[in-house]
């Protein structure tokens, strides 16, 4: 199978400052990749680049045709404004079906079905008329995943998804992501601080400190130079 995304000697940056330098990265269909690194190491910039919101300043970034057509599902970091937003779960999930190619003013039957399937899959159908701001952190996260799944069936990019979740919700969250990855073959790219859990969950790890400190199977990470430094520090 052809890889989804191939980066060769890619730099990403703003104006005159490079945030990511000389990145070589391959994301294959079905991968579970975790991006780790300290604050300011270029993780969020890389995510923007993968989403196509930021063009590389050097190197080549090749995105597979099917991914470009099907789109990438994105789970951004939650903002303070969202936590008390008056919107029903249904409204939020439906907004995932919006797509640049469709300029129709209203949601079609197919899009509504897609949203209903998404809610069913994440077990939030019962919550659909509840207000988003009244849900727990874990429930809100499910709503956002359902929304992202409306945008794609191929790849999910999650930016610091466990921030603000309580420990049991975190375990639940990892279970859910692993299920999506293994049973539904959805490619996962996740940025996380939670390095210890990530090693047991992910298939591949990318450790970023502007340059690549480590990129390879998660099993090898703990033994690597970068991994040792990060785990002990």
């Amino acid at each position: 199978m052809k890889p989804f995304i191939v980066c060769e000697h890619v730099d990403f940056g703003y104006e005159n400052q490079d945030a990511v330098i000389d990145l070589n990265l391959t994301i294959d269909p079905g991968d579970y990749l975790c991006i780790v690194g300290a604050n300011g190491s270029g993780k969020s910039t890389l995510i923007k680049g993968l989403l196509g919101l930021l063009a590389p300043t050097a190197g080549t970034l090749a995105v597979a045709e099917e991914l470009r057509r099907g789109g990438i599902g994105y789970l951004p970091q939650q903002t303070a404004a969202q936590r008390d937003f008056p919107a029903t779960v249904r409204e939020v999930v439906l907004s995932g079906t919006l797509n640049s190619r469709k300029n129709r003013p209203f949601y079609s039957r197919a899009e509504k079905n897609l949203a209903e399937q998404g809610m069913e899959r994440l077990g939030i159908t019962k919550l659909q008329n509840r207000c988003y701001r009244e849900l727990s952190g874990g429930q809100q996260q499910r709503v956002l995943i359902a929304r992202a799944l409306c945008a794609t069936e191929q790849m999910l990019i999650l930016d610091e998804p466990i921030t603000g979740l309580d420990p049991s919700a975190i375990q639940e969250f990892y279970r859910l992501i692993r299920k999506l990855n293994q049973e539904d073959r959805i490619t996962i790219v996740m940025v996380s601080h939670d390095i210890r859990s990530v090693i047991s969950q992910a298939g591949k790890i990318l450790h970023l400190q502007q340059r690549t400190l480590f990129f390879g199977p998660a099993a090898d990470y703990a033994a690597s130079e970068a991994g040792k430094g990060f785990l002990e520090g």
Binding site: G52, G71, I72, Y74, L75, P76, Q77, A87, S95, L98
Partner: peptide, 24 residues
Amino acid sequence: FVFCYNKIFAVTFDENFAKATGVR
């Protein structure tokens, strides 16, 4: 508000997600 209601919702609720799905 009638014809672009869904886009306005998306942009108001979550700008980053809207951007990633291709809303202007």
